[in-house]
Computed example of a mutant assay.
Amino acid sequence: MFSKHRRPSELIVRAGFATEQAVYGMLLVAGMIVAASAHGGTSAEVLVTVVVTVLVFWAAHVYAGTVAHHGLEEGHNVGLGEAFRMSLHATWGMLLSAIVPCVILLLGTLRVFPDRLAGWLALISCIVTLAVLGYVAYQRRGAPLHLRIIGALVTAGFGGLLALLKAIIH
């Protein structure tokens, strides 16, 4: 069951979202938004590019994790199915990280937002999410508030660099 020190929502965030794969996925999504919109792509084109790219990279990570874990590990024989499940669990955050920016791009596709605004909002959502991920990472380590904020700013800074690149390209 759940630890009495952690709420179920905390466990879900930690297991799926506040992971290395989620940070990597968010940087991948932000980069793809910049690259796909650099050529004047519509929200639909950017959305398709992001979804396909994230799925391909996620599948590659699942495959690599399965291969890496299959066999003898720490004196325990890990079967192919178990290795696959371990890899799925470890890479879940990469898919989760794409949800918010993809929903925003979908809203652009549905003309709730103009294409250009949808691209910027999706990119901004990546930056905000990166800030949250950085903050959570430092919070989990028990860091004081000022270090959590620095962690959030540095992590968001990577997304900010991609936003700057988008602005320069346009």
Rank of each mutant, 00 (worst) to 15 (best):
R6Y: 07
V100Y: 04
V23T: 11
E74C: 03
I150K: 08
V62T: 03
G16K: 02
L80A: 06
I33W: 06
Q139S: 14
I99F: 06
A163C: 05
Y24D: 07
T42Y: 04
G75W: 01
V136Q: 14
K166Y: 04
R85I: 14
V100L: 07
S37D: 13
V51G: 00
Y135R: 06
E10V: 02
A30K: 04
F17H: 00
L47N: 05
R148D: 05
I99V: 10
G41H: 04
L110F: 03
G40A: 08
A44R: 13
L121K: 02
F2N: 10
H70Q: 10
G119Y: 03
G160S: 07
R14P: 00
A59G: 11
L117H: 08
A36F: 08
V13W: 01
G108H: 02
I127S: 00
P8K: 06
G134M: 14
K166H: 07
V112A: 15
T66W: 01
A35E: 02
S3P: 11
G31H: 05
L72Q: 13
H89R: 14
S9G: 00
K4T: 12
A98H: 04
V112H: 10
V132D: 05
T53V: 15
G81S: 07
M26H: 02
L133D: 08
Y138K: 14
V78C: 12
G16W: 03
S87T: 12
H76S: 14
F2R: 09
E45Q: 09
A83G: 13
R6I: 12
D115P: 00
A156N: 06
R14H: 05
V13M: 02
T42V: 06
L147I: 12
A90L: 05
G160M: 09
R116P: 02
R14D: 10
V132G: 01
G151N: 04
L95S: 05
A15W: 00
L105C: 14
V100T: 06
V136I: 15
G81D: 04
A15M: 04
S3Y: 10
P101N: 08
M94K: 04
V56N: 10
S43Q: 07
A59Q: 08
R14E: 12
M32Y: 03
V62I: 09
E73W: 13
H70M: 12
A59K: 13
I150W: 07
G157K: 11
I33Y: 03
Y63M: 15
G31D: 01
L80N: 00
L153T: 13
G41L: 04
P101L: 12
V78Y: 09
V78N: 09
T42S: 12
L107I: 00
T66F: 03
H5P: 05
T53R: 03
R85A: 11
T19Q: 06
